[in-house]
């Protein structure tokens, strides 16, 4: 079995997914190609036009991303040292990672939960989509990561966020509810910790320490986080589940578990990027056919990182 040149993949983890992809060679080749730096315009502070003008003023080269006006590719690298960054006008974020917040589609004034929020690229995007109004609860379990989340939210001028530190699997709604009755969220973005295989183009060592044990362990955590998220969402509300891994154990299997054990349905949704349906069979397991409504984004289809995204409607 061929290994992939240019990336550290001693166990040939990518080879594991050959049965799932349409063009094995293109898939491996894309995974080995570094990604350009991308920033998302922080619309709490500036418009895409203003950021483009600012970049031109500072001599920072940029290219537009055709599927999203607020994303700019930077062929010469990330402008951490720039006025655009100092003013909080931009946030460095891989373009495919801008997908789940768009799918969640939070509205101004809503109650929204981001249980695995740090370091905050998606949190700050959610805040901007909410026009910095309503309630956005951003949680993480790790104090160090929380400090990155806080500093990113501050730089972006986010004022509708409440930052909490707890295990997302037993998050309490109490501080966010008047009286004894828990007040549920309208929408939750379940962007869980995962084996991160899809970030191989940004982190060439992402596969170096891959083990099936870790995949299985983290899948248990993912199931717990998604289950609690569904419980805390009002009937008719939306939960988006996303990962940056190709592993069906962490994707379709987690959805299959939620469909069997929680009050939810998977719903179809449109993506501005080329994608493939979720898989219903893997490694001797079969999943609820509804998992086909989830979308897999492979690196070779849009020249992005790898990603997985599913949209759930809460039914009770």
């Amino acid at each position: 079995m061929p290994m992939t040149d240019g990336i550290d993949d001693p166990g040939d983890v990518l080879g594991r997914y050959e049965p799932l992809v349409d063009d094995v060679e293109a898939f491996r080749e894309a995974c080995a190609r570094p990604l350009p730096a991308v920033v998302r315009v922080n619309e709490i502070k500036a418009t895409p036009d203003e950021v483009r003008a600012g970049f031109e003023e500072e001599g920072i080269a940029y290219e537009s991303v055709d599927w999203h006006d607020g994303l700019l590719r930077l062929p010469d690298g990330d402008p951490g040292h720039s006025w655009a960054y100092v003013h909080g006008w931009v946030y460095g974020q891989e373009e495919v990672s801008a997908v789940p917040a768009l799918v969640l589609d939070p509205q101004p004034g809503e109650r929204v939960f981001d249980p695995c929020a740090a370091p905050g690229s998606k949190t700050t995007q959610l805040a901007a989509l909410m026009e910095d109004t309503g309630l956005l609860v951003a949680n993480d379990s790790n104090l160090g990561r929380l400090s990155a989340l806080r500093s990113n939210a501050e730089r972006c001028g986010v004022s509708n966020v409440v930052v909490t530190k707890s295990d997302a699997r037993n998050f309490s709604l109490k501080p966010f509810s008047e009286g004894d009755e828990d007040e549920p969220f309208d929408r939750v973005l379940v962007d869980v910790p995962c084996s991160c295989e899809g970030t191989i183009r940004k982190n060439p060592d992402a596969l170096a320490d891959w083990t099936l044990d870790h995949v299985q362990g983290v899948a248990g955590v993912q199931k717990g986080i998604l289950e609690r998220a569904i419980e805390m969402t009002k009937p008719g509300g939306t939960v988006v589940y996303s990962t940056c891994t190709f592993a069906p154990e962490e994707n379709e299997a987690v959805l299959d578990h939620a469909l069997a054990n929680s009050a939810c349905d998977l719903v179809e949704f449109d993506l501005p990027l080329e994608s493939r349906p979720g898989v219903t069979e893997w490694d001797g397991e079969t999943y609820d056919p509804a998992v086909e409504r989830a979308r897999r984004i492979y690196p070779h289809h849009n020249d992005t990182g790898g990603f997985f995204c599913a949209k759930l409607e809460v039914t009770a």
């Binding site: 910095d132 109004t133 806080r150 004022s159 409440v162 930052v163 501080p175 509810s177």
Partner: peptide, 19 residues
């Protein structure tokens, strides 16, 4: 701190809106 919404007071969280 300034917060764009409201919550029951007092509340014990890491951050509430912005400094």
């Amino acid at each position: 701190w300034a917060f764009a919404d409201d919550l029951p007071s007092p509340v014990e969280v890491e951050a509430l809106g912005m400094t």
